[in-house]
Amino acid sequence: MPQFETGRIFVDVLDVEQHSLDAMAGLAFVTGTGIAVRNGAENLFVGTVRNHNLGKKVLGISYDVFEPLAKQSFLEICQEAQAKWGEELDFYVVHAKGKLDIGGVSIVIAVGSPHRDEAFKASRYVIEEIKHRSPVWKLEHYADGDSEWSKGCELCSSNHTHEAHVI
């Protein structure tokens, strides 16, 4: 049996006024090139801004991010996914910061794996954990001129007595 190589992890937060998120860059990162291609399955998840939420017409979303802790949480989540589904899995996670219009890309998650089952499961794990744990907030801008912060998920601390997730 050949020994596997520990997977690579890339995480970042991009200011969308300066850079657009590039899903193909994520796919390329986890695919590799030439004889370096060792994955047989690449899963790409792209989050985009939709034009409605909870019955209100949405024009755009501003993302606020506590960058150092967010990037650390992305890294920890990817490492957890490696521990669950294989140390050889590759991960690319980039989240947007700033204001996006409808259709704007808010997050790109790419996972590369030797096999498809692990790629699907790890990708789902990463997006769900980011939604529940990473310090990112969205301010929705509505067609009626109003703006509102999403209710979100309450973060856990080890000795706080409240419910872990409140939607």
Binding site: F66, H95, K131, W137, K138, W149, G152, E154
Partner: peptide, 10 residues
């Protein structure tokens, strides 16, 4: 110290 209200990333 940074205060973190409920999060809503993704």
């Amino acid at each position: 110290i940074t205060i973190l209200p409920p999060v809503s990333g993704g």
